[in-house]
Design a protein around this nucleic acid. Structure first.
Lengths: 227, 227, 227, 227
DNA sequence: GATGAATGAGCGTTCATTCAT
DNA sequence: AATGAATGAACGCTCATTCAT
């Protein structure tokens, strides 16, 4: 596997792959079509990639790198947890609109037909965000910003789950329909509402429970009992 | 299309289909393999189903019927919202363990390769739960059990999103890995922890915000439904 | 191969076969369709016929028997050769219109795909007419009705060739088109013209050549010089 | 559809197709068998032809082009009608012997199983000869070479019918058997006899009827001579 | 004897992969 | 190194034939 193609040419090829894989799925996608889209011969694909699977993986990695950079950028700052959440949501909205194929491909690897890659890719993809989320949740707990009785890792998991589903709602046909059925309007129609409601949901989920508040406030006299 | 196969034999065929479709995805799954798994000849498949697509749809519907009954059973009762949530979580845990293929197939249709069915299936599948969830959230609001400043439909959407992701974590390889990465242990290892943490997350998300509480506390006599 | 079906029932089956074989050709014709058309189960076909080929042969024989009877009837009389020719032409016209499937099937066996049957069927089918035609040509020669310098067998062959092509023009799509192209109108449009022109052609073909006439008439005084 | 195969290699493929289609008919003929006969893989067939039908058509056209050139060559000259007839007969004899498959395929399209092509092909194939024959018959009439009371188009039709049947007798199994039955010997055995008898038949069929002769003789002053 | 569901060989066709140019 | 025509395994699907009922 020698390298003669410029990075630019390789970009064209990978983009063509991402496009075709997102459009038709990894199985129905055709190497000929991809080559044609990229303006190269099939031979080139096989000079640079062992086979279709290998090429698919390369396309995948490219998507993930981009997705990763989107998240990393947001997490770089030193914001409070809810600001972070808002930034993440807005970043995913933007990215999902501009490059939905990347998200479609991301979703593709979660499907059973990719069980070959599942473990290895999961590790590569999810490690960064999982660590980041757990960490900033723990920090927020330490800073007294959010409830302290939560398992940071599981809460990070829930947090990411909500973001993923939102992401898919913006880029995958099925999830977009699902959103419409649940909410009555297209997810693209009212970005702000999505942002505000999700933040409301998260803020509350992360906030001190009333009995915790009691504790904290050291005001045992006020009975704020849940029901 | 005549019926000679007993229901039992047809079950075997559909299960073989579900298994194979879950394992390889709708495209790579082979009708020959399915027939072999079911212990019948390919011809039988084509005596009872128009073509591969038609058969896939039949497998799908079987899965969805089961999933639906799982949810419907839980929703039949008159429980409070968090009891319902707990029952749902436990039901999905149980079902996901016993019949993971069903969930895998459900996940399959969310992938791009099924975009043929996406809109129609989404409607069929998600309508029931979306309506049920929205409705019991609204009722809970009216009963003063949960916050009143939430959009019931979006909150239903978030609620379902969390359940779906959990479901997939129990049944789809990728999501299971993801859970492990986020939480540090296999999702099957500690069902109770999952239940309790998710309930904690949900309870809090649904509960009155502190400022709402304050508000409420100042006007205990006022019925705070709807704001 | 036992016989339980009444002749009538068998007739229905054979007619269904003839219809389907004529419509789709022996290869594309389906045993199931034939059974359905005949209102019986496929099993019946295989109780009475070894296989598709065997059944096709039976259909064929039925057609040929009918075609044969049409010709035999005409040849039964003691007419002069041209009267016979006219009667034959008219009989074929009538038959071709009424039961074109029979002719289509007859044509089918002349095609290469039936080379299995060719020799045996040719003998069965063509023997009768060939002998009949040769014989009445020879008799006509002996009676001084037609030229004596013709080989009766070859002339019988030419005679039959013209009739066959006419027959096919009435019943086979391709030949019907061909007729239209040659003559400018549909063969069904002007039966009389066809009859009269073919008779003109035949009469002349069979008639004494001019030099024969000279010879026979021994009337050298008449100037018959062609050129 | 690019061209990498040399004309020679393509010839081999088409010949293999013609051979197989002639042997088994368009339906039973197998693309795999054809590929094997041609010494190429099935894939090649599908690189150069859309599908089986398309390939069959290509084989057909090849046959027709050759047949056409055989006839065109003969008709190019300025011969008298009977000389033309003789040349045609001899050309068809020669061609039928050398490339019988071509004729078999020609015959194939006349059969019902090709009714898809029938009208379009009929036009393509028969137009040329039909016009040529009609025209030279009309010219022969104007030149006083043949009878003037004949419809040139119908007579052209009869003329072609006789040639076609002869052609098929040389190349199609069934018709060859039929010839044997009618004439008592194989058509290949005595080409000369076939030529002379058919010419005798045609000459006479085209010649002035006796009553026309009489007529003509009574009006010697009228210049009816061609030359 | 009649049935028609089950069978499975074999079809037309596709497309990932190879390799001579 | 790039090409893209050739390859052929493997697919979805059909249908003549069988045989348990």
């Amino acid at each position: 596997m020698v390298k003669k193609l410029t990075d630019q040419e390789m970009d064209v090829i990978l983009e063509a792959g991402i496009d075709e894989f997102a459009l038709n799925g990894p199985d129905k996608a055709s190497m000929h079509t991809i080559a044609a889209k990229a303006g190269v011969s099939v031979g080139v694909l096989y000079n640079y990639f062992k086979n279709k699977d290998d090429f698919f993986e390369a396309c995948l990695r490219r998507c993930l790198k981009v997705l990763d950079s989107v998240i990393s950028e947001v997490l770089a700052g030193e914001d409070k947890i809810l600001v972070r959440a808002e930034k993440l949501i807005r970043a995913l909205q933007k990215h999902a609109k501009e490059q939905s194929s990347y998200n479609v491909l991301y979703h593709e690897i979660t499907s059973g037909s990719c069980h070959k890659y599942a473990p290895v890719l999961a590790k590569e993809i999810e490690s960064i965000s999982s660590q980041a989320y757990s960490t900033f949740i723990r920090h927020a707990q330490e800073d007294g910003d959010i409830r302290t009785d939560a398992d940071p890792r599981l809460f990070a998991f829930f947090f990411d789950s909500l973001l993923m589903m939102l992401q898919f709602s913006y880029s995958c046909e099925y999830y977009r329909e699902r959103f419409k059925i649940y909410c009555g309007y297209d997810v693209f129609e009212d970005d702000e509402k999505v942002v505000s409601e999700l933040l409301k949901f998260l803020e509350s989920a992360f906030s001190f429970e009333q009995n915790q508040i009691k504790h904290r406030a050291q005001q045992p006299q006020v009975n704020t009992g849940g029901e």
